[in-house]
């Protein structure tokens, strides 16, 4: 086994130089006139049992990254390895089998559950689809799952509209757990929920992770939530991964100017601790036409002349702490 192969099989998931472009069509015969570079060359790896947090503002490509990794989208370039196996180009039955091991929890608990299906059917559907038995045979198992995620047993016979947002998210989690997956990609699972309910769902996810031995890719825009959940965090900006570090390290010693600004911009729930804010000017540029050089340079408070020329690469500055910024090269 070569070093590279060994490296790939050690991690549950390994993503190498992943790109996902969406074509922009227009003009005569709707020709392709450009690309939206939603994910532009990211590499990351997930160890077994860890929670990797992916954080960034809206439009930074974090959801696209999550869905490309789960192969809901076909990557434009790059490679994805799951348990050492290349899953980048899987099709048909093989792809279908892969889905047993990778499940997703979606953001909107109102849109991601079929309103015409009983909760029992929603949760048993993945099991039925993979031939684990008929719905009636699986009833006990599904009821166990429902109670495990904190729903009453009679939830089995109810419909999604009878539940609150937090409870619906629990249904979504039960559905994702049904097949006992190895990896769960949770895409903004709590952003639609109220604070008091949010903490319930976060605690549940943590408990289940220990119990079912799950690896979690946790995607969110709220850095304090991501920090609470994750072992390691990747910060995305405009389709690029700008910093990857241990969760505590990232908070204590953020290296990239964007991460520093992001952390300082979060209002802290403590009136006596009003820290100096780094206020960024302007908005996130369009991913259809990203800036040349470092994608962050037009808004960066520490911009240097060379930033508009050379695109920085993700480099290790400390142990397990990687940054893509020319300040550290």
């Amino acid at each position: 086994m070569t070093q590279q192969q060994k490296d790939r099989s050690e991690h549950l998931l390994k993503v190498e130089e992943l790109k996902k472009y969406y074509p922009v069509r227009g003009g005569f015969f709707r020709r392709k006139i450009g690309d939206v570079k939603a994910v532009d060359n990211i590499s990351l790896d997930l160890k077994r049992g860890e929670t990797f947090g992916l954080v960034g503002e809206s439009g930074c490509g974090k959801s696209t990254a999550g869905r490309t990794i789960t192969r809901l989208f076909k990557p434009t370039e790059g490679k994805i390895f799951f348990e050492g196996k290349d899953i980048t180009n899987l099709r048909g039955t093989q792809l279908r089998n892969l889905r047993q091991d990778i499940q997703m929890v979606f953001q909107d608990p109102y849109a991601s559950l079929n309103p015409k299906m009983m909760v029992g059917s929603i949760v048993s559907e993945p099991l039925v689809n993979y031939g684990k038995g008929s719905e009636s045979k699986l009833k006990d198992e599904v009821m166990n799952l429902l109670t495990r995620v904190g729903l009453p047993e009679d939830a089995y016979y109810k419909y999604p509209h009878e539940f609150s947002g937090g409870q619906r998210q629990r249904i979504g989690i039960a559905r994702a757990l049904a097949l006992k997956p190895k990896l769960i990609v949770a895409d903004e699972p709590v952003s639609a929920l109220d604070v008091s309910v949010q903490s319930q769902v976060l605690n549940l996810l943590k408990e289940l992770q220990d119990e079912f031995d799950l690896t979690l890719l946790f995607i969110a825009h709220d850095l304090s939530v991501v920090k609470h959940m994750s072992d390691r965090i990747g910060v995305m900006y405009l389709g690029n991964l700008v910093e990857v570090a241990d969760a505590d390290d990232l908070y204590r010693d953020p290296k990239h100017p964007y991460t520093q600004a992001l952390i300082s911009a979060i209002p802290q729930p403590d009136p006596r601790n009003k820290s100096e804010r780094i206020i960024l000017s302007g908005d996130v540029p369009s991913p259809q036409n990203p800036p040349v050089g470092c994608p962050f340079h037009p808004r960066c408070p520490k911009v240097m002349p060379e930033c508009s020329g050379k695109k920085p690469q993700l480099k290790e500055v400390n142990k397990e702490h990687r940054v893509s910024c020319l300040l550290y090269e």
Binding site: S164, G166, Q167, V195, S196, V197, Q198, S199, Q200, L202, N203, K206, L223, S224, V225, K227, H228, D248, Y251, I263, I266, Q268, P269
Partner: peptide
């Protein structure tokens, strides 16, 4: 309960306090 149920950046907390129900 509301104040103790929000995750805070500077804290290391395994389990968040919750408010039961809705």
């Amino acid at each position: 309960a509301l104040l103790s149920s929000i995750p805070r950046m500077e804290e290391e907390k395994e389990v968040l306090n919750t408010i039961k129900g809705i």
